[in-house]
């Protein structure tokens, strides 16, 4: 968890390349349900209407479209039934990457892995005609790109990601409150972050419970998060708040540290289990695509 501070956005070429985009094409999200108000896409919606895949019959009700009446049933049974087809709609994916100072500090920065993962998720979603929105957060959350679909969206999305600058400290609680206030169409919210909010894991999970979207938590981790490579007497300075902690590294201190980290880690995992959110742990020092491929082992990932 050590490194050098960087105040610059990560160059586009360092983030994305064609091979990377190609490698995530075969991955896809499948939502359990999508919102009624969505756009035609490949996600199953609650709407039964103009689709091409037969789903069910139901008795006719005044106001129904005559074109949906199954006249064969009427001839056989003398009752009017409608043929119902499943309407395929789009699944809005709201990608919420962490662009706080800490994400850009280490070498390589966690933001590199986070933004690559964000683009991979966006590419997956756009490939199946879903819409993707970008809402980076640090001390607050802001809408950088409203949900869009279409072939031209991915390059634009990539440029937007590459333009993201470090944005101060981490306040995930406030950012999620802002997300709720945006009243977005129900979809999937993918939060890509280390989740190191000074408010603590309890406050973070509490804020996450308030999100009414399906949640995918992409946790950016490093091996040194749990086993820091530190010895001796050190003054640890928080890269965001600037506060210092004097620590004499001993085996006892390291044990207590690991215990605290495990509590944090378990808190996040417990939230994912109980809330049905997806939790993905990405090792920032390893290649992103193989890790994502492991998660999409069956070709799909149910959010």
């Amino acid at each position: 968890m050590t490194g050098t501070r960087s105040s610059r956005a990560i160059p586009y070429d360092a983030l994305f390349d064609a091979d990377f985009l190609e490698s995530v094409r075969h991955l896809r999200f499948v939502a359990r349900r999508v919102d009624r108000r969505g756009r035609f896409a490949e996600q199953r919606s609650r709407d039964l209407g103009d689709g091409i895949e037969f789903r069910d019959f139901r008795p006719y009700a005044p106001g129904d479209d005559f074109r949906a009446i199954d006249w064969n049933i009427y001839r056989r049974l003398g009752k009017v039934f409608l043929r119902l087809f499943e309407q395929l709609e789009d699944l809005p994916l709201y990608i919420v990457p962490d662009v706080s100072e800490s994400a850009f500090m280490e070498t390589p920065p966690r933001a590199r892995a986070g933004l690559r993962a964000s683009l991979a998720l966006a590419a997956i979603s756009l490939n199946q005609h879903d819409s993707v929105g970008l809402l980076p957060f640090a001390e607050d959350l802001r809408m950088v790109q409203r949900p869009r679909a279409g072939k031209g969206t991915l390059p634009r999305f990539a440029r937007r990601l590459a333009e993201l600058e470090p944005g101060g400290g981490t306040d995930l609680v406030a950012s999620l409150a802002r997300l709720r206030s945006l009243r977005l169409r129900s979809g999937v919210v993918a939060i890509v972050s280390d989740f190191f909010d000074p408010a603590g894991i309890d406050a973070v999970t509490e804020a996450l419970r308030g999100v009414r979207h399906r949640l995918v938590l992409v946790q950016l981790v490093r091996a040194t998060d749990r086993a820091p490579d530190l010895t001796g007497n050190v003054r640890l300075r928080d890269c965001e708040s600037g506060t210092g902690e004097d620590v004499s590294i001993t085996s006892d201190v390291l044990t207590r540290y690991r215990r605290a980290y495990d509590r944090f880690d378990e808190g996040l995992a417990e939230f994912a289990r109980t809330s049905g959110a997806g939790l993905v742990r990405l090792d920032c020092d390893a290649d992103i695509v193989p890790q994502l491929a492991g998660l999409f082992s069956a070709g799909t990932f149910n959010a």
């Binding site: 968890m1 050590t2 490194g3 050098t4 501070r5 800490s102 500090m105 280490e106 966690r110 280390d194 190191f196 000074p198 603590g200 820091p228 530190l230 001796g232 007497n233 050190v234 003054r235 640890l236 300075r237 928080d238 890269c239 965001e240 708040s241 506060t243 210092g244 902690e245 004097d246 620590v247 004499s248 201190v253 390291l254 207590r256 540290y257 215990r259 605290a260 980290y261 944090f264």
Partner: peptide, 23 residues
């Protein structure tokens, strides 16, 4: 008093819990 080596980290929240260092 120990002269500490200063190291910048991305968070100190776990160290705060782990240490009993007098401030």
């Amino acid at each position: 008093r120990v002269r500490h080596r200063e190291i910048t980290v991305i968070t100190t929240q776990f160290w705060r819990e782990a240490t009993e260092e007098a401030q």
